[in-house]
Design a protein around this nucleic acid. Structure first.
Lengths: 118, 118
DNA sequence: ATACTTTATAACCACATAGTTATATTGTCA
DNA sequence: TGACAATATAACTATGTGGTTATAAAGTAT
């Protein structure tokens, strides 16, 4: 992110946006072990078919998944292995954040406890 | 992202969401070379002060920035160096995606050219 | 051709959110 | 204390979007 011009900035934001929905993360998760068609993804996620199609269209637009038709079925797959590498880093970051927030919540609790006794 | 339970999933989504706005990326970018207060960030980004405060509040909630008051000023800083590591990876991914989309756009153009001649 | 399957899309609703304006809050200094 | 500076927040508007339902489009099989 060194000296990002406006165009690159919106591209990066769009990329992050694609990953900012639980449902889309669930969908991507189902593709970890290979391509799947819409029916399979719908089945695995438990979401509505129309909803899944919309999310897949967005992920495809953002360049995160590949698309290939076979008969009436359409198979989607992870476009870039780096996607999961990214998610793993985020998991690490999130873990640290949650830990930090947990610690400060405890500190606050301790403070409130003192006040309560005073 | 291996076997993410629902709670972790929403946390990860929230983290990505925080990075999914160009304005917030601009704000984070101004913090690359150290902490800054709201006035400085407002000045550097050219955004309205209220808007900057709102975005900073969101980034703080998400655990991406630190906050420390000094007098009436409030200084914000990057909470985790991994944030930029992440952005750099995304920049790489985005570059590949744009390149791929550029290539397929060219291929399409070529096809259309052929049809045009036919 | 007809019925069926699979996927995409349009229409809609409810809700979230980016940005602005005005104002409240808090600390500093004369 | 009173004026001033820095930040946060409430109110509001406009826009985007997640989810659903219904339907269109395209391929397959009888």
């Amino acid at each position: 992110m060194q000296a990002l011009d406006e165009s690159a900035l919106t591209h990066v934001a769009t990329y992050f946006r694609a990953l900012s929905e639980p449902t889309r993360l669930r969908i991507l998760n189902t593709l970890r072990d290979g391509e799947k068609n819409v029916s399979q993804i719908t089945e695995l996620t438990g979401c509505g078919q129309a909803n899944v199609s919309k999310h897949l269209a967005l992920l495809f637009e953002a360049g995160l998944v590949t698309r290939s038709a076979q008969g009436t079925a359409v198979f989607y797959g992870i476009a870039d292995a780096a996607t999961f590498e990214l998610c793993d880093i985020v998991c690490g970051n999130v873990a640290r954040i949650v830990e930090r927030q947990f610690a400060s919540a405890n500190a606050l609790k301790k403070q409130l406890g003192k006040i309560g006794k005073a």
